[in-house]
Structures are given as structure tokens and as C-alpha cells.
Simulated scan of single mutants.
Amino acid sequence: MSEDRFRHVLGYIDSHLDDTLSLGVLAAQAAYSPFHFHRRFAALTGMGVHRYVKLSRFKRAAWQAAFRSDLSVTEMAMQAGYEGPDAFSRAFRQRLGVSPTAFREQPDWARWAHAWQDLDQVRRFVMPLAHQHGDVRIVEFPETAVACLPHRGPQERIGETIRRFIAWRKENRLPPSRAATWNIAYDDPDETPPDAYRMDICCTCASVLPNEHGVVAATIDAGRCAVLRHTGPDSQLIDSVRFLYGEWLSAGKETPRDAPLFFHRVTFFPDVAEHEAVTDIYLPLASGT
């Protein structure tokens, strides 16, 4: 199975988690016989195709449990392909240590951060991104007023900050469809001590009233930026960032400005299939000559 066919199969799985994903269906997508497909899939991913599908469905349901409070446990279980909420709760407890309801009340974000490593490893190392210099465009970014919730501390606990920000957005009726979502990244998590890690969770907003969530008014500065569109899971976002700082900067004459990298979250998982999530990466640049 070529890399392109393999990428197609994983994308098909992401887009059809609510459908029947039998061995025969997926083998047909790969243009392989079922006899050879499951062996080739296991050789490339390190896990069987049935397990991969089950974990993909479970991951979506678990993200819904963490960030989509309007969905019931029964609805999540059905969408994940379980016979009922009891079976789903057992699987949730096995992977995350607690039931979905208990996790919603008191999340263990450290365990959460490591729960998807097997799936993320498949995507990142078996399906590497292939960027081209022509994918990067230069724009004049306008000064943008935002509502900002600073995250300070271990990256693995950022889910806690996201949930607080979602709660503020709901109270202020500012869903992503009405107010663009931004992340401001001050630090490289691989090079920063966990307690010193900083990222701001933001959305476009002209003014912010005092609130109990810690959301404050802030501004993303205007200026020239290089923009690279990343399409795919967050586990591969670091690869797109490294392309910008590595190959792209090395090949041209641009110089980074003394301002943090920031992201525009155009669409995101679990609202869309994971391979269809879109993030625009903005690298601030020095003024042109």
C-alpha cells in the first residue's frame, strides 16, 4: 500500500466514523484485497485496523465528553459505536481512569494528554506532512482586538484553560462561527520547562467585561506575517511550525519580528473530522525593505 493510498484510508476513516468501517470497506478504499490489507495496515501502523477504527471513534467521543457538554453520555456512546453507555463508560474508564461523567466533573488532564499517543504516532510518523515554499503567503495582518484567557503552566493542562474559555464564550454568545478563534504561542513546549510554558486562548472581541473566568481584553499586533495553512491533526502542527522556522526561513530573505507566533483556528476537531481540521499559522516578520 503506497503512502498516498494509506493517507486516503486514514482520511476515509476520519470522515466516516459514523458509518460501517468493515475490513472489506476499507480494503476497497485502499484497492487491496482484504486478505493483504489488514496485514499491510498493521505493518504500517503497529496496530490492527479494527483497533485503529475503535480508538478513532473513542477519541472523538472522549473529546466530546471533555469539550461538548451539550452531548449526553448515551449520545457519545452511540456515535462511538458502542452498544450502550455502560460499555462506553467501561472503555472510557479503562483508558482515562474514570467514567465520562466523573471526567467532566474533575478531569485528569495529565492522563488525558497521553491517552492518544498511539493514534498520534501513526499520523505523525507514518503520514509526514509535505510542505512546499509556495504554500507560504505574506500578508499584512491588521491589529485585532481579542478576548484572551492566558494559559500558564504545563501544556498537558491546556484542556482546563480551553474549557474555561468555552464557558466564557457560551455566556457571552460568541461561538467560533461568530468570533474567530486565535492561539498565541509564546514558547516551544519542547524547549520550555512545563511550569514556564505560556499560550493565550483568544477570540475576536471588541471589548471584555469583568468576569469570573479570567478572560481579559488584549490585542494581536498589526504587521507583516508569513502564513502557512496546516490541514490535519494538532499532533502534526509542530511539524508545520518547524517547516516555517527551518526550511522556509532558510530559503528566503525574511527575518522574524520580535513577536510571538500565533494561530487562527479555522475549523477544529471534533466539530470536523480530524484530518480536515484547519489552522492558519502566522509567523510575524520584520518590515519589508
Rank of each mutant, 00 (worst) to 15 (best):
107 P>K: 06
63 W>T: 01
249 L>S: 01
146 V>I: 14
214 G>M: 10
280 D>R: 00
100 P>W: 02
255 T>W: 11
251 A>C: 14
25 V>L: 02
91 A>F: 04
58 F>V: 05
194 P>E: 13
223 G>T: 01
186 Y>E: 03
256 P>F: 04
165 F>D: 05
48 G>P: 03
48 G>Q: 12
239 D>E: 07
251 A>M: 06
9 V>R: 00
278 V>F: 04
248 W>C: 04
224 R>K: 11
143 E>A: 12
119 L>R: 09
106 Q>C: 12
105 E>P: 08
129 L>M: 14
90 R>D: 07
110 A>G: 15
289 T>R: 15
193 P>Q: 10
161 T>F: 04
277 A>D: 02
20 T>P: 08
185 A>P: 05
211 N>I: 10
100 P>K: 06
272 V>G: 00
181 T>M: 12
149 L>W: 00
9 V>D: 02
32 Y>K: 12
29 Q>W: 01
150 P>F: 00
198 R>M: 09
44 L>V: 15
154 P>C: 04
83 E>Q: 15
257 R>N: 11
43 A>Q: 09
178 R>N: 13
259 A>H: 10
151 H>M: 07
270 P>S: 00
238 I>L: 10
266 V>R: 04
227 V>A: 05
266 V>D: 00
72 S>Q: 08
70 D>E: 15
41 F>D: 14
215 V>G: 07
35 F>E: 14
21 L>H: 02
248 W>I: 03
155 Q>R: 07
34 P>Q: 03
153 G>P: 08
265 R>D: 06
173 R>S: 15
64 Q>S: 13
69 S>C: 07
131 H>A: 09
224 R>T: 13
278 V>N: 00
132 Q>M: 11
135 D>W: 06
180 A>D: 12
19 D>P: 04
196 A>H: 11
190 D>W: 13
147 A>L: 02
148 C>E: 12
263 F>P: 03
271 D>P: 05
259 A>D: 13
264 H>T: 02
124 R>P: 00
265 R>E: 12
180 A>E: 15
12 Y>C: 02
65 A>Y: 01
231 T>N: 07
193 P>W: 04
156 E>M: 09
158 I>V: 15
2 S>N: 12
186 Y>V: 03
131 H>R: 14
267 T>W: 01
233 P>A: 09
122 V>I: 09
180 A>N: 07
82 Y>K: 06
38 H>S: 14
150 P>Y: 00
176 P>V: 04
38 H>Q: 15
102 A>W: 07
119 L>G: 06
96 L>E: 08
23 L>M: 10
49 V>P: 10
256 P>D: 01
99 S>W: 06
169 R>L: 09
159 G>R: 03
149 L>A: 06
